[in-house]
Computed example of a mutant assay.
Amino acid sequence: MIVAFHKPYGVLSQFNKNPDYPDQRVLGDCGLPEHLHPVGRLDLDSEGLLLLTDDKELETKLLDPKHGHRRCYLVQVDGQPDDLVIRELEAGGLQIKGGVTKPCKVKLLGEAPSLPERDPAVDVHAAARSSWLKMELTEGKNRQVRRMTAKVGFPTLRLMRISIGDLQLHELKPGESKLLSPEETALLFQ
Rank of each mutant, 00 (worst) to 15 (best):
H125F: 10
L63V: 15
H67S: 06
K141C: 10
G31L: 01
L187M: 10
G140P: 10
V124E: 13
V124I: 08
R71N: 04
M135L: 11
G40F: 12
K7W: 02
L44C: 08
L179V: 12
N18E: 10
E183A: 14
D45Y: 13
L89G: 07
G31V: 01
L167E: 08
E136R: 11
P19M: 02
K151R: 14
L84R: 06
D20F: 13
D82F: 09
T185A: 14
V152K: 00
L137C: 06
A112N: 06
G98K: 02
Y21D: 09
G93S: 08
L115T: 02
L50E: 03
G40W: 13
L49W: 07
R147G: 14
C30V: 05
E47D: 06
D54E: 11
E111K: 04
G68V: 05
I2F: 11
K102H: 13
M148T: 01
K105N: 06
R25Q: 08
L137H: 03
Q80F: 02
D23L: 07
T149G: 03
S163G: 02
P116Y: 01
C72V: 02
Q80C: 02
Q144L: 08
G48W: 11
G98Q: 04
G99I: 05
P116C: 04
L180K: 08
T101M: 00
L172G: 07
V75M: 03
K105S: 04
P38Q: 12
V3S: 02
R118Q: 00
D43Q: 06
A186C: 03
L50F: 03
E176N: 12
K134V: 03
G40C: 15
H67Q: 06
E59L: 15
I86Y: 05
D64R: 02
M148W: 04
L44R: 00
V77K: 00
A126K: 14
P103V: 01
K56Q: 12
V3E: 06
K56N: 11
L74N: 06
S177M: 11
D29W: 05
V26R: 02
Q14F: 09
E176W: 12
L180H: 13
R70E: 11
L188E: 10
H6R: 07
L27W: 01
L12Y: 10
G48R: 09
Q168C: 07
K134W: 09
L51N: 04
A4Y: 01
